[in-house]
Design a protein around this nucleic acid. Sequence first.
DNA 1: CCACTAAATGAATGCCGTTCATTTAGAATG
DNA 2: CATTCTAAATGAACGGCATTCATTTAGTGG
Lengths: 236, 236
Amino acid sequence: MTAATSVPADPHSPADQHGPAAKPRRRVGRPAAAVLDQDGITAAALQLIGKSGYEGFTMAALARTLNVAPSALYNHVSSKRDVLVLVQDHLTSFVDVAAFEAGPWEQAVRDWAWSYRDVFSKHTPLIPVIAVLPVTDAPKTLAMYEAVSAGFSRAGFPQERIIPAIVAFESFIFGSAYDVTAPADIFDSGTMAASTPHFTSAVQRLAEDSHDKPADVAFSLGLEALLAGLGALRAA
Amino acid sequence: MTAATSVPADPHSPADQHGPAAKPRRRVGRPAAAVLDQDGITAAALQLIGKSGYEGFTMAALARTLNVAPSALYNHVSSKRDVLVLVQDHLTSFVDVAAFEAGPWEQAVRDWAWSYRDVFSKHTPLIPVIAVLPVTDAPKTLAMYEAVSAGFSRAGFPQERIIPAIVAFESFIFGSAYDVTAPADIFDSGTMAASTPHFTSAVQRLAEDSHDKPADVAFSLGLEALLAGLGALRAA
DNA sequence: CCACTAAATGAATGCCGTTCATTTAGAATG
DNA sequence: CATTCTAAATGAACGGCATTCATTTAGTGG
């Protein structure tokens, strides 16, 4: 069975802590050597991914950065997927939910959505993991949902619409995170341009008019539409 | 180098053709034996995925269903990713764009979006492939974009907003496709329920009130919001 | 009948995640 | 201090995977 994380997560962790974190690890009294633990593995994994990307992220490579044999990792983690879950949950603490506590709902959602997209556009291989991961396995992610839900509730959303609305935003965010990684010439129709006149001219006009990054234009457009449409669900 | 598909795609293929398709394959005059070709590989791949899922989809398994050695596949395809591209492009022909030719814009987008989501919710491992794939490598996908672009243009969208609007819809669709595959208990906060009161009560209220599938509720909500918000961009 | 070539073969390669019997070294116990 | 217990690290395996390549096979045009 995969357990992911053990401690109850303490939801008031202000932002994050990089580098070697505290190591309680004190069950009853046993060897306190412990070269490895989940926080250390998570930090090393994040650093390795930053340096080598997800292609270079292997259990062997991770073990090497920790000066340990690959098999040693399996004393603290039950699979590679488990490591990805730890990384995902850690990254979620970089998502900005601060404005949900006080500010107006629209701006809170904007801050949240943009930061959420930016964090995971650099980690798209995690999206398939997040999307089907029970919140129980990711305490910091659960804390994010609590902050967002509280904000929606405070803004006057009817209870039964809160989760669907959040899911709709999130779906858009995940899809948009992929879009950020698309190559610049993804819409170049090449030799087939002649047979796709409407599409080709639309692509050209976008390239001429806009000076911003295409992914940002599309994200802004969709986000504002969702804000307007879903914001209308609020009670007076 | 990956070439994906060779023929220029003829954009008026009405819907699709299952089973063994036509085999031009006629460069100058050579052995016409040809046990294998891209269409056959695509059809076999789709069938294998349907039967064994993406975990069971290996080059060896694919070769076995075609009664061929695994290495034989590489005479027609340059990598496993290439096969996925072929499958993705084929699946795109199942997406419904018919209403863009005549009907009202809103309903056309609805038909398109729901069918698009339904097709790829059964093929989420293809989403990372689609999202960064140059349209040149996927002729049927390009044909879909042409139909959709034409519909947006006909509906009065300003040229420079057509692509961003389509991308926004698509991002939402891809994200929502993942959502369909999420386990039913994904939002069960378990032992941490006490520390996440707003979230927990919102989840509970949704479960009580709604009889529809949660993924469908969220998709409908988001889609209608995007329709309203983006539809407003049209010229009178 | 010969020469040519696209296509199929099967063995080999290298990388991967994961398992497991075994060893190591601190902590608690008396 | 010696004994015992155990979490943690080790290194050699294993099976599966995509991909490569020298070689063979079998139609076709000349």
